[in-house]
Design a binder for these strands. Structure first.
Lengths: 202, 202, 202, 202
DNA sequence: AATGAATGAGAATTCATTCAT
DNA sequence: CATGAATGAATTCTCATTCAT
């Protein structure tokens, strides 16, 4: 919603960030025009350039910030459960719970960060993909350790991890706050499915 | 001056379809310009309009055709395995194999059909979503029957199905023809994971 | 209205002429596209060129034909009343009646012929303007003779004639077949006004 | 690169208005391209949109402004001659003088406002026609009062008024500043003709 | 004659970006 | 820090016209 006039300071940037996120989420990066964004924020197009370098850089910043936050949050969550470090099942449980909770709360960021990769210029693309890879490595690591210990049984930990991530992240696509299922129910369901899907027989 | 170069006759549309699919896959619908498309096909921009009604309609046709083909192919595949109709495990196996095979062969169509939904105008959007829903209903139906018969155990067949579909469709994102894993390996891995994830204990 | 298919022969041209006239009348020459015209006639654009040389020439032909008909019809009407040749009042009466009748019956032709002059290329423009001038000369001639004989009194026969012509031709703008006034009433009213407006005192 | 040449500030719109008027007058609304207009003004095409909403709206504004000015000017002129309010002959004299003077000075506006009606979209069309009707009502009112008082004698005041207006407005079509007749002569001639054409016998 | 597919130019409009004020 | 006006390139789409079939 537009602010009446002359919004200023750090607030303005935050408004731009939020409206931008929403617009990209709803229409896509290419389809969002800076005029639209400026109008939403309640300033003139030219004024945007006091807060962003340019459109591409704005997108990159959104994505970088998201992945930064994601990696940081997981690091923290994972350190908090340090004593589980050696138990792949416990770690996977923690990961599923973390991933779903974090993603459901930031559905728009997630959508943008995952589906606007192709709108990034090569340099920016590489940087974001690298961050994403680091996050994926976390899951793959858990699966690999599980396999090594004989508690998990999958022929290809990497492909298995991709599948799990797709399943979990997909929640952002269909989750609805007023829907039948809340975060708790979804987490329980998916935790069960993920663990079963990886489980070694016996 | 009339036609001196470029594509010809009914072939032209097929060329447009293929190049269009590729360009949308690579850059996104909004980012693909008809100039680009025409150039790839080797005709003038204006000539495109002898074959498509407009850009939006072109996208819609691509997506409609994809879902049409998908539904038809599954119907056929599912009819071919008629004697499994009563066995949810067998049916799910068949579905996973079908879905992966069909999708891996049409990665670009799939990508476009799934990720350009937001580029559709409301009417077209509704039509495509409805087709997608019909396909999803197939999986949900299998899961529900499995649960009813006690061979599957999940608290919410619909959410479980969404997860499975996300996992399977996600293959399109990372599959590479020259990659480590072929269709057979992926199918085996994911069939196992899916069936285990649904399985009732015991 | 479109004819079903393959309309042919001299009929086709007549259909083009009529639909063209209507479209130009309603939307203007520039605003009428040949695609529209072809669709209205029920043929493809390309086929138009079997009947017209090009768009500009088509307009010119419409206008030339109209003025041709107009001059011919007046010549005939004026010859029919040969014995009035010497009486300016009688001649003007005849002219008003003729002009209104002829124009009301061909409102669209008139509109096009008068208001699309600026759409003509220089050469065509000159030709049409010349035809129009010949027609105007007829009125001016009547007024001049009337002034010479003392039955009319206006300071400038040419300007007076332009005024009379504007008044009479203007009928095409507001006349409606189902309107309050019919051709007879209008003719009577305007004949009276024209003769009074020119009349010498006494 | 930002502004390096061309027009500036609030002056720019006035330049657009004038060049636009001229171009529409000379070539017609449909035939005038915004490229042309921008070139005449000395700015880029895109810059036009800092001053107009779109082409159609620009035309509408021109016409609205004209009719606004016309109605306002007549109101004032008619108020100035208040003591004549009761004398239809004096009022008609005043009207003819006003109409000719105002129109001769604004030939282009008049032409555009009267002959581009068909280029207006329905809503805009209705608005302009309504303004025109208000102006016409003024003349019709004078004629009606004259008839009521027995100084004018015409069978249909409305049709008579349309005729008078066509005659007077037609001046814009043939008037030339360097021509044989000046505003004064034309006004005298047409005032005489109009009053005679309406006059009751005796 | 009619068709359908082509051309190349041009239409209105929108875009990201710049910059003097 | 915001504005308003500018740029120049790009957008989708339409146009009159041509011509092999």
């Amino acid at each position: 919603m537009a602010r009446t006039a002359g919004s200023h300071g750090p607030t303005t940037f935050e408004a731009i960030r939020q409206e931008g996120l929403r617009l990209i989420y709803e229409h896509g990066y290419e389809a969002m025009s800076l005029r639209q964004l400026a109008a939403e924020v309640g300033i003139q197009v030219g004024s945007l350039y006091n807060h962003i370098r340019n459109k591409q850089d704005f997108l990159f910043e959104l994505m970088r910030a998201h992945h930064d936050g994601l990696l940081g949050a997981w690091e923290e969550a994972s350190r908090a459960a340090e004593r589980d470090a050696e138990d792949p099942v416990a770690r996977m449980k923690a990961f599923v719970a973390f991933h779903i909770a974090y993603h459901i709360d930031r559905r728009r960021d997630v959508y943008v960060a995952n589906f606007e990769l192709r709108s990034l210029e090569p340099g920016n693309y590489a940087a974001i993909v690298e961050m994403r890879r680091r996050y994926e490595r976390e899951v793959i690591g858990i699966v690999e350790r599980g396999v090594a210990r004989g508690v998990f049984a999958v022929s290809d930990p990497q492909a298995a991890s991709y599948g799990i991530l797709a399943m979990l992240t997909g929640v952002c696509t269909w989750f609805h706050p007023e829907g039948r299922l809340g975060t708790a129910e979804i987490t329980e369901l998916y935790t069960g499915m993920v663990l079963k899907s990886l489980a070694a027989p016996g």
